[in-house]
């Protein structure tokens, strides 16, 4: 329980910092970069629940991100339904699909699970591209409306910043609750050894499915936020490469770490912005940074930085 309290304090400090940032930063570009960090953090967190805590890899996570974005786009633009009604529909669609896909897929393990989820992600992406009458095809879906509550519209970057980070904060707290609960302990048991977990009475199949569905719900929410920020979506955003990018965020940030998702998402969102100056060398440097982080900090940035900090403290104590 002490751990939860500590986490709440950290969340509070973080919320204060985020509010201050949101109020002080004037430049729309910086605000927008931070909005994307928020959306990516939500994505990384959703996958981290599945990968870091339950130990189930997914190389098709962008599919749920896309399902969230496309569902709200279609409902709110084509059918003129309020985005707030489209939101539960989007989340529910993703959850239902996750349920039906998860049942057979989560029986797989290791690289076969990776392959199964990858195949699922690719099929969903092809549907986005080929179901042209509904999704707009490869050219994309235009004209998605902004979010509004009554006459208050989330149409400026500052307002959207607060919306996105509010959602992220909410899930920081929720996810910590889940991890510290019975479910969380069961998940970690599955991570450490599925047979052992089953032997002590954990219904492993049900647990894995539950966390998969939750993870899909969070990813589709991120897709919802993305669609109403950019007002345009196209299949490329939710491709196989996007799935890989989310996995990278989780691993670089630190598996089984809530703050790691934030760190990983921040680094991988900011890195391309910084590397602009290198022009044609950008790709090489980006790849090199990924490799170096993993070689020297294989447990991700959070753990790695903590280790360095603790080591230096030990040194000072001596």
């Amino acid at each position: 329980m002490i751990r939860t309290d500590k986490h709440l304090i950290a969340c509070f400090v973080f919320a204060a910092a985020a509010t201050a940032t949101g109020l002080l930063v004037e430049n729309a570009y910086y605000l927008q970069v931070m909005i994307f960090i928020g959306i990516n953090t939500l994505l990384a967190l959703s996958l981290n629940m599945l990968m870091g805590y339950a130990g189930q890899i997914s190389l098709g996570h962008a599919a749920f991100y896309g399902i969230g974005a496309y569902t709200t786009a279609i409902l709110s633009t084509t059918y003129n339904i309020s985005p707030w009604l489209a939101l539960p529909a989007a989340v529910f669609t993703a959850m239902a699909i996750a349920y039906f896909v998860g049942r057979p897929t989560l029986r797989l393990t290791g690289y076969y699970l990776a392959m199964g989820t990858l195949g699922f992600g690719i099929i969903v992406n092809i549907i986005f591209r080929e179901w042209r009458s509904v999704t707009g095809g490869a050219s994309g879906f235009v004209g998605i409306p902004p979010l509004e509550i009554g006459s208050f519209a989330f149409d400026t970057d500052r307002r959207y910043f607060f919306l996105v980070w509010g959602v992220v904060l909410f899930f920081f707290i929720i996810c910590r609750r889940i991890i510290d609960s019975r479910v969380g302990r069961a998940l970690r048991a599955i991570h450490d050894g599925e047979h052992a977990a089953a032997a002590v009475g954990v219904d492993t199949a049900k647990m894995k499915l539950k966390i998969f569905v939750l993870s899909a719900a969070m990813a589709s929410l991120a897709g919802f936020l993305y669609a109403h920020q950019i007002f345009f979506i196209s299949p490329g955003t939710f491709s196989f490469l996007a799935s890989i990018r989310i996995v990278t965020m989780v691993v670089i940030g630190g598996m089984a770490s809530i703050w790691g998702s934030l760190l990983g998402a921040s680094l991988l969102t900011l890195l391309p912005e910084w590397l602009h100056a290198f022009a044609d060398y950008e790709m090489m440097i980006y790849g090199l940074v990924l490799m170096l982080v993993m070689i020297f900090l294989p447990q991700g940035l959070t753990r790695g930085i903590l280790d360095i900090y603790e080591n230096s403290r030990k040194k000072n104590d001596k």
């Binding site: 729309a28 570009y29 994307f36 993305y226 950019i230 391309p272």
Partner: peptide, 11 residues
Amino acid sequence: DPTRAVRNVQR
């Protein structure tokens, strides 16, 4: 990439 294009335009 559309997302990067939007961010670059904003920048």
